[in-house]
Design a protein around this nucleic acid. Structure first.
Length: 212
DNA sequence: GGCCAGGACACCA
DNA sequence: TGGTGTCATGGC
């Protein structure tokens, strides 16, 4: 239904990264306002963000909330992009996934979900994103799994396919926003049951591989 | 006015 | 290691 393209609306990989930081605990509609203001200020690139004074940046991203924290995080990421990646986000994609992930996690303000969002949607790497929707849904289905276990199980069952990871994550988020109408063969419930089934299979597979 | 939204981090026991 | 407080805005 949702496809793999366009679910994360961004014109450039760097814009994906900016959105990933701005959306931390924030409704996406507020993130869009902040991104539009950055675009209007011609600040949607690493060099502009790195050079901008903190107060100006704070005011530009104010609609997204947590503006002081997020301004600092954006500047840290912009400097990292310039100094470590030479201004080219796609350089992350040329690294092994674990190496790129560790590098991102070393940055202040980049946690596991934000790192995986950048790896998947900005770099096209097969990093399955475990977000609040995913953990809430699985908890309600009685599946008590650590985020790392969920990530590994889904990555395994999706054959480390970035396109599939993007499709499934987008679908989980979009379906989670909808309210189940409790009809027989409800599309939402069928989707969730099916995902849970494959997750269990993926989890079993991961454990077997780990044992080997 | 309260709750929620596509988290992360510092601090403390 | 796990729990808690903090950061802050806008829509409903």
């Amino acid at each position: 239904m949702y496809g793999s393209e366009g679910w994360w609306p961004a014109k450039t990989p760097f814009e994906v990264c900016v959105g990933a930081i701005l959306t931390q605990n924030t409704n996406w509609s507020n993130v869009v306002k902040a991104i539009d203001r950055l675009r209007d200020a011609r600040a949607l690139n690493a060099r502009s963000l790195a050079a901008m004074d903190a107060e100006t940046l704070e005011q530009l991203i104010r609609p997204a909330g947590f503006y002081r924290q997020k301004a600092e995080r954006l500047k840290i990421f912009a400097v990292f992009t310039i100094e470590v990646l030479g201004g080219d986000i796609s350089r992350l994609a040329s690294m092994p996934l674990d190496r790129a992930r560790t590098l991102l996690l070393s940055l202040k303000g980049i946690g596991e979900e934000t790192a995986d969002s950048i790896l998947l949607y900005a770099c096209g790497m097969p990093a399955f994103i475990v977000d609040a929707y995913t953990t809430r849904w699985l908890t309600r289905m009685g599946m008590d799994m650590e985020p790392a276990e969920i990530r590994e199980a889904f990555s395994s069952i999706l054959h480390r396919d970035a396109d599939a990871c993007a499709r499934l994550h987008g679908a989980i988020v979009e379906f989670s926003k909808q309210v189940c109408r409790s009809k027989p063969n409800c599309q939402l419930c069928t989707f969730k049951r099916t995902c849970a089934y494959y997750l269990r299979e993926g989890s079993k597979r991961s454990r077997k591989q780990a044992q080997r």
